[in-house]
């Protein structure tokens, strides 16, 4: 058992015994060695299920949206990305700060599940792409901290500055090439909405894509409807996406969803000044305010 797993179980037990929260949301070992799905712990005797390893991918802040109307308190383990998601949900008034106990974990970056499956246990596994792009591996907000308190920000960011070279590669294509590229990607979308449902930025009580009766989106699976879904979702999470990359990991069809989201992050930064979602909860939201001196292009 790793040192961090031990610390996790200890703090979870303490929180449950003291009654600081009714439930602790963490990760546990799944069906295979490279899966560490979310776990909900209600009883102190169950804390030994909790683990911390290289595959704790799920962004647990997403589950706080489920507990919005819940009376009691929940304790949640947060990596850097989970904490950004928490902040962003807080800004959208989706959760109440006082109803959540946050336990911060410095995250050294997680490993690629697909590669783990392919290469096997005793191989040198690469980090997940989302973690290679990560600028905020340390939790930004917490009530308890499981790392070394003396050395805050103990994990160095894998990326000092954001890297948009993958986005730039697509921007460099001709319009028709870009259209063909995205059509190919989204033609294989099965519209299972795993990307939406795993996404901590998607917190609408009723989603537009669940309103086929109203006619917002057609039920048919075809290029046009799939692209409608992709583009609308990208716009809806613009300014909310905290780049945890969960959408792309969850996608059963391996669609590079983050390439869309990163494009919007990049443009927001270029157009409206530096902004990373979920970093500064006092900061203004890029699509929630405006500046009279915003770029004036076509208007």
């Amino acid at each position: 058992m790793s040192e961090m797993t031990k610390k996790m179980q200890e703090i979870a037990r303490e929180i449950l015994v003291k009654g600081e929260a009714e439930v602790v949301i963490g990760w546990e070992k799944g069906t295979f060695w490279y899966l560490s799905p979310p776990a909900f712990i209600d009883k102190p005797e169950d804390v030994q299920r909790l683990v911390w390893d290289d595959f704790c991918h799920n962004n647990l802040s997403k589950y706080l949206v489920d507990l919005k109307n819940h009376e009691g308190k929940a304790a949640v383990f947060v990596k850097g990305c989970d904490s950004r998601a928490f902040n962003r949900l807080l800004q959208d008034k989706q959760i109440a700060r006082e109803k959540v106990v946050l336990i911060g974990i410095p995250c050294p970056g997680l490993l690629d599940q697909d590669k783990a499956k392919e290469l096997g246990k005793n191989s040198d596994l690469p980090k997940a792409q989302k973690c290679l792009d990560c600028q905020y591996p340390n939790p930004l907000v917490y009530d308890y901290y499981l790392g070394d308190k003396e050395a805050l920000n103990e994990v160095a960011a894998t990326k000092e500055a954001a890297d948009y070279s993958d986005v730039a590669a697509i921007e460099a294509m001709s319009p028709d090439e870009r259209y063909d590229f995205w059509t190919k990607q989204y033609d294989r979308c099965i519209r299972c909405y795993a990307c939406r449902n795993v996404c901590p930025a998607c917190s609408c009580r009723e989603c537009v894509f669940d309103q086929t009766r109203v006619g917002w989106i057609g039920k048919a699976n075809n290029s046009s409807e799939n692209q409608f879904f992709a583009l609308t979702r990208a716009m809806h999470v613009a300014g909310r996406c905290i780049e945890c990359g969960e959408c792309e990991r969850a996608c059963p069809m391996d669609i590079p969803i983050m390439l869309l989201n990163k494009k919007l992050v990049k443009d927001i930064n270029e157009l409206f000044g530096e902004y990373d979602a979920g970093i500064d909860i006092e900061g203004k939201l890029p699509l929630g305010h405006f500046d009279k001196n915003d770029p004036e292009e076509f208007m």
Partner: peptide, 28 residues
């Protein structure tokens, strides 16, 4: 209650399932 807690309510399972066969009829 216990089993469903972590479920995200997406349909990845059903859409990759060889036996799931529910459908909806719509007019365009």
């Amino acid at each position: 209650d216990d089993i469903s807690r972590k479920c995200l309510n997406c349909s990845a399972c059903a859409y990759v399932c060889p036996t799931c066969h529910c459908f909806d009829i719509a007019s365009e």
